[in-house]
Design a protein around this nucleic acid. Structure first.
Lengths: 200, 200, 200, 200
DNA sequence: TATGAATGAGTCTTCATTCAT
DNA sequence: AATGAATGAAGACTCATTCAT
C-alpha cells in the first residue's frame, strides 16, 4: 500500500516456466522442483532455462512476485469500489477462492510458507503478501465495525484471523483431499456461516 | 478412535534424532534436512544414524508417529473427562497451543503439510492426524449444540473450520514473525472472541 | 535365429565407456567396476557418465548387448556360407578365439557368468548368448553327422559340450596365466585333436 | 603332490560361516558377500564374525583351502588305488560331479575364478587347485596312453582339456539352468561318450 | 535462442572393521 | 563368545550451474 505496485512483465517462456514450477511444487513439494524436472516439463534443455532466469532462486522470486502483483491489483480494485464494507470482504474472500479454483496448484505453493523459508529474500516476500491481505482486510473490517455492518464486541484482528484462517483451512483440506470436493460450493456455504456469525 | 492407540517406544538416541530433525526442518525447511546436517547436530557420523533408523523416510515417519501418538493421547484424555463440551473444546485448543509454546519448531513441521507430500505414506499419516483432530472436535461441537452450549444455526463443520483455522493461522503468524509475540496470551484473547461468537 | 538381430548404435563415448568397463572387470573383477574407476579411466568426472548411460546396470547391459550383437552377426555369416559343416564349426571355433586374441579382457567378462548373476536381466542376457552359440553349433553338428562328416555314434549334444567346453577351458587357462601363452597357436593344435577325434 | 597336504581344522562356527559364504556367493555373486549378509545368515552380529576369522579375506582363503584340502585328499585316494588308469579318470570325474550334486552352490564358487581375482593370494590359491587336478589327470592320462587304454595319437594335454572342459561346461549349464536337470544322469551319459571317443 | 557435454559439491546409503562392555 | 554403537572410506547417483558451439 505504501509502495507502488510494480508492473512486472514476464516473457511467454518465463510465464510458462513459472507455471511449470508451480505445478511441480504442487505435485511433489519443493524437492520436486529441480532444473531437470522444470526443463522436462517445459520441453527444453536445462541450460535453456538460464536464458530466461538467472537461477533457480529467481524463478521462485518470480512466482511470488507474480502472485503478489496479481492479488494486489485485485484487492485494490475491490477496495476502490463503492460497495459496502461487508460486500468488499466477501468479494476478497471469493476472489481468492476463484484464483485457487482456476489454478489449484497455486494453493499448495501459496499456503506453504515452508517452501520459501530457506531464503531470506523469499520468506520476506511471503510475509509481504500475507500482510498485504491482512492489512486490507483489517482496514475494511474496522470500517465495517464503524458502520455497524459487523459486530463491535470482537476485535477486528480476531475477526480477520477467523475469516482468513477458515479460508486457508478450507483450501488446505481441499488440497489434501486432492481437490475432490467442490471448493466453490463449500466456500459459499462457509461464507454464509461467517456472515451469520459476524454480522451485528 | 476406531483403532487402538499404538504405544511407540523410541530409544534415547532416536528421540534425539527426531528432535534434531524437527529443528532442522523448522530452521530451513525440508531441504535443510540432510543426513549430513542431522549427523552434525546429533554429534555423530552419518552412518551412525542408520543404526537407529532404517533410512531418512523412517525418521520422518517417526516424527509424525510421535506427534500422532502424543496428541491422540491428549485428546482422548480431554474427551474422557467429565467437563462440559465447550470446556473440552477450550482444553483441546489450549493443549495444542501449549504444545507449540513448549516446542515452537514443531509448529513449522506440523502445519507444513507440503513437507510430507513427497511420499504417499507420509501424506497419509498427515491426513490421519488432521482427521483425528477434526473428527473429535466435530463430535464435541455437535454435542455442544445438542446441549445448547453453542449456537445451533451454524453447521458444526463450519464452526470446526473456524476454530481450527484461526488457531492454525495464529500459529502460522507467530511462526512467521519468528515467535516474537506471546502466543499464549494472544491465543487466550482469540479464544475469548471465539467463545463470544459461537456461544448461544 | 528366431528374433531379428537388433542393430545397436552406441556413441563414441559409450563405446569408450564400454571398453573401459570390460578392462576394469578383467583387471579386478566386478568389484573393481566402480563409477569412480570408470570415470578415472575414461578421463571424465563421475557425473559425466550419467550423460551417456542411465546407470551402472545399463552399462553392463550394453556390454552384453554389444557382444551378443557382434557374435550373432559373425555366427550368422559363417552359417550362411557354402562351406561344409565341419568347416563351419572350425570357423566358429576360431572366430571366438580371434575375438579374444584381439580383446583379451573380453574373455574374462564373457566366461564369468557369475558377474551378471546379481541382476535377473543380466543373467538372462548371458543365457541368451550361451544358447545362441550352443544352438547353432548343435544344428551344424547334426548336419555334419547327417552328411557323415562327423561320427554318428556320439550324441551331437555331447560333441557340442566337448568342443565348446574345451574352448572355454583353454581360454580360461590362458586368462589365468595372464595371457602368457600363444592362444592362437594352442587353439589350432587343440582343434586338430578335436577333428581327429570327432571325424568319422 | 610336491607339497604335503596340510591338515586344516576349522571350528564348527568357522565351517558354518564358510558354508554360509558359499551360499551367499552362489546366490548373488561376490557382491552379495557382505559382512552384514554373512552375520544375518549365520545368526550372529557382525562383530562376532571377527572372533572366528581375522577378516573377510581370511574367509575367502578358508573357502579355497577347505576345497583344496578335500579334493586333494579325494584325488590322492583315487590315485593310490589299484584300478586301471581309465577307471581312475572316471572316478575323479564322478567324484567332482558328486561333490557338486551334494553341494550345488560350490559349483558357482569353484568355477568362477573371477571371484578371487581381486586378491593375488586368492587367485594363486585358485591356480593351485586347478593345477592340482590338471597335473594328476595329465599324469594318469599319460599312464593310460602308455598302457594303451587310451588313444595315443592325441596329446594327453588335449585329452585333459577335453575331459575337464566338458565337465566344467556341463556343470556351468546345470548351474545356469538353476540346477533343473539331473546332473548325475547327464554326466554319466557324457562320460560314456568321452570314453567312446578316447578309448583305443 | 538453444543444446550437448561437462562438473564440483553434495545426496543418501553401505562397506568392513573397531571398541567398550 | 558376543553385541550395540560407532566410523572412515567409499558406493551410486543428483544437484544447479557453466561453457563451447
Amino acid at each position: 500500500m505504501k509502495k507502488n505496485i510494480e508492473q512486472i512483465v514476464f516473457s511467454n517462456r518465463q510465464v510458462q516456466i513459472i507455471n511449470v514450477c508451480i505445478k511441480l511444487i504442487a505435485d511433489g513439494g519443493i524437492q520436486n522442483l529441480t532444473t531437470k524436472h522444470i526443463a522436462e516439463q517445459v520441453g527444453v534443455s536445462e541450460p535453456a532455462l538460464y536464458r530466461h532466469f538467472k537461477n533457480k532462486l529467481d524463478i521462485l522470486k518470480a512466482i511470488l512476485d507474480e502472485f503478489k502483483y496479481t492479488s494486489q491489483k485485485e484487492i485494490m480494485q475491490i477496495n476502490n469500489s463503492t460497495e459496502n464494507s461487508l460486500e468488499k470482504l466477501k468479494k476478497i474472500f471469493f476472489k481468492r477462492i476463484e484464483t485457487f479454483c482456476i489454478k489449484p496448484e497455486l494453493s499448495t505453493v501459496i499456503f506453504s510458507e515452508e517452501i520459501f523459508q530457506n531464503e531470506e529474500i523469499l520468506s520476506e516476500k511471503v510475509m509481504e503478501i500475507m500482510q498485504l491481505h491482512q492489512q486490507m482486510i483489517l482496514k475494511i473490517l474496522i470500517e465495517a465495525q464503524e458502520k455497524n455492518e459487523v459486530k463491535n464486541n470482537i476485535p477486528a484482528e480476531h475477526l480477520s484471523i477467523l475469516i482468513m484462517g477458515s479460508l486457508r483451512l478450507l483450501v488446505t483440506r481441499w488440497r489434501m483431499t486432492k481437490f475432490t470436493f467442490d471448493l466453490d460450493a463449500k466456500s459459499k456455504e462457509l461464507w454464509n456461516s461467517i456472515e451469520l456469525l459476524i454480522k451485528e
